[in-house]
Write a protein that binds this DNA or RNA. Structure first.
Length: 262
DNA sequence: ATGGCTGGTAGAACCAGA
């Protein structure tokens, strides 16, 4: 049975409810994983999701910042949360799908401005977060999908300029190496690059600061959908919805969808 | 020309994002 799973850093689910509805109406994924919902659980905007048939929702929100959610047309079990930063922030929620597949939705910390854990503790927390994910990933024994905003663009063709971004948090060698250890720890398949291989440029985030994001095209691929090897063999399609960057009141990230025949 | 913008929250010459 085919299942489609989307991931989107929405930068406030309440402020962008209209474009979430547009996305669900036009693309109808079975499951949508949201990051940066920026809402406490009691204030989550349930009615629109209910109206569109996304009856199953798992929330891990907090005041002001961060926050993740999984909304689904398929039943979800095993509401699980990891605190991979060990500081109480709402950055993960996991579920099991009816076919047994595990789905992990993660929002890796951005890491601040300076790529030095001594001067900038946020950068150290980001690296520690990815290291804790790696310990979890090593022990994992079930087919799993891990999706979300990883806040790391690993490949040269994942950024508009490899040279210009080498010292910019999100593309520094120390982060890329940490992410590559995570990937190796479970032989994760990077589905974006499985379907759109290097050296083709592929971005999922463009800054709000450019006056014309498409013309300047200074993007980065910060958002990822990874599958464990057995789940990756079931992947049949992948969509990167660039146009959503131009929708009304856009997020600075765009949604991606993977289809699996499980 | 990578910080020029953005949302949430307070009521800031704020914080965080990346």
């Amino acid at each position: 049975m085919p299942v489609s799973i989307a991931s989107w850093n929405i930068n406030s689910v309440r402020f962008r409810l209209d474009i979430v509805e547009r996305f669900l109406t036009e693309h109808a994924p079975d499951i949508l994983c949201l990051q940066e919902t920026k809402v406490i659980n009691p204030d989550f905007p349930h009615p629109m999701f209910e109206r569109l048939g996304y009856y199953h929702r798992l929330l891990n929100g907090q005041r002001m910042h961060h926050g993740v959610a999984i909304v689904s047309r398929l039943p979800l079990t095993e509401d699980r949360r990891h605190d991979w930063q060990d500081n109480g922030e709402a950055r993960h929620i996991g579920a099991r799908l009816p076919n047994g597949l595990l789905l992990e939705n993660v929002y890796v910390p951005a890491g601040g401005d300076i790529p030095d854990p001594v001067i900038n503790p946020k950068f150290g927390q980001k690296l520690a977060f990815v290291e804790r994910m790696t310990r979890w990933s090593e022990a994992l024994r079930e087919p799993t999908l891990i999706v979300g905003d990883f806040n790391i663009a690993p490949l040269e063709c994942d950024v508009w300029s490899h040279k210009a971004l080498l010292d910019v948090v999100s593309h520094t060698p120390i982060e890329v190496e940490a992410l590559s250890r995570l990937q190796a720890s479970h032989a994760w398949v990077d589905l974006g690059r499985h379907f759109i291989p290097p050296p083709q440029p592929l971005y999922t985030w463009w800054s709000y600061r450019a006056q014309d994001w498409r013309a300047s095209n200074r993007g980065r691929r910060l958002d990822h959908l990874w599958a464990s090897p057995e789940a990756a063999r079931a992947a049949t399609g992948f969509t990167v919805l660039e146009d959503a960057r131009s929708w009304g009141k856009p997020s600075d990230h765009i949604p991606q969808i993977v289809t699996l025949d499980l």
